[in-house]
């Protein structure tokens, strides 16, 4: 009997309306979440850090907070990155950069801040909402939190009062005026002395020698010229030292850093000629081979350089 009354109660129009309204409410609540998931960037986040460029920030001295996000995707913008509240810090600037790298993209945001009070400041983690390509789910990535200890020196008050601030400004003004006064005085003395010396030299009828002509800075060598010079060096000094000097000259002319290795040089777009590549390898051999092979290696390097020069 009780069952019958319950079933009949569920079938009443009033109950059906209530159920429909509840379903609508749930749908309305879930809709933004679905839209949110659809708008997320698909990302594989490798690194997400929040750091400060100084371990010891100082009162009233600007420093930088750096947010770094490294992802494997090549992206042109990073959406849904939410920075924490920097309470206790005044934001002076914010610079965002996306750096494309062979293995993905590096996002770097530098926030310039200044603190007006000493003591400890805690910064909550930044977060990034994205669609994680690792597990195929929308995720919230969190950076690390940051706690900064703002130091300010024992003599510096936490907040300057109105009177103290006026006194400080007056002292600064006085110091600035004194400094510029001293600078002006020195300039006048130097100018007077120069004028006296010039009049004396005019009286002695001594003609000052013309300044020596400054040699123009040498133009960068072309690859052919550098091969020619390397050849001259090795001809003049056909030993290991000569090979090392010729090698260094050639590498510099090819725009490769001195600390690089041969594979870096061969990867350079300026080294496409097979004769030049052979000459580079021969010089490498002459630079590092054992003494028993040195004469042959230097001869081979000379021959290959000649071949590359022609």
């Amino acid at each position: 009997m009780h069952d019958v009354s319950l079933r009949s109660g569920l079938q009443t129009p009033a109950w059906r309306n209530a159920v429909a309204a509840a379903c609508l409410a749930v749908a309305v609540l879930l809709a933004p979440a679905c839209v949110w998931a659809g708008q997320l960037q698909p990302l594989h986040v490798l690194q997400f850090t929040l750091s400060s460029d100084t371990a010891t920030p100082t009162l009233e001295r600007r420093f930088h907070l750096i947010v770094m996000v490294r992802v494997t995707q090549h992206i042109t913008s990073l959406r849904n990155l939410i920075l924490p509240n920097f309470s206790g810090l005044e934001i002076l600037g914010d610079e965002q950069r996306l750096i494309a790298r062979p293995d993905g993209t590096l996002y770097r945001e530098v926030i310039t801040v200044v603190s007006h009070q000493t003591g400890s400041i805690h910064i909550d983690p930044a977060y990034l909402d994205a669609f994680d390509t690792q597990n195929g789910k929308p995720m919230r990535f969190l950076s690390n939190a940051l706690t900064l200890q703002i130091g300010g020196g024992a003599l510096m008050p936490v907040r300057l009062g109105g009177m103290a601030r006026t006194l400080r400004r007056a002292a600064l003004l006085l110091l600035t005026l004194t400094f510029w006064g001293v600078v002006a005085l020195v300039c006048i003395v130097v100018a007077l002395r120069l004028a006296v010396e010039r009049s004396r030299s005019r009286g002695n009828q001594v003609v000052a020698a013309a300044p020596a002509p400054v040699a123009p800075s040498p133009a960068p060598l072309t690859p052919a010229q550098s091969v020619g010079q390397a050849l001259s060096i090795l001809r003049a000094q056909p030993d290991r030292l000569g090979a090392l000097r010729a090698r260094a000259l050639l590498w510099e002319a090819l725009g490769v850093d001195a600390g690089a290795t041969l594979s870096d040089v061969l990867r350079s777009s300026r080294v496409v000629d097979s004769r030049l590549r052979r000459a580079l390898f021969s010089l490498e051999r002459a630079s590092f081979t054992h003494d028993g092979d040195l004469t042959v290696a230097v001869s081979a390097a000379l021959a290959d350089l000649e071949c590359a020069y022609v």
Binding site: T261, L262, S263, R285, F288, T289, H290, D293
Partner: peptide, 11 residues
């Protein structure tokens, strides 16, 4: 080769 190059070491 019977001699080592800097590339060998770095690799």
């Amino acid at each position: 080769r019977d001699f080592v190059l800097p590339d060998d070491i770095r690799s």
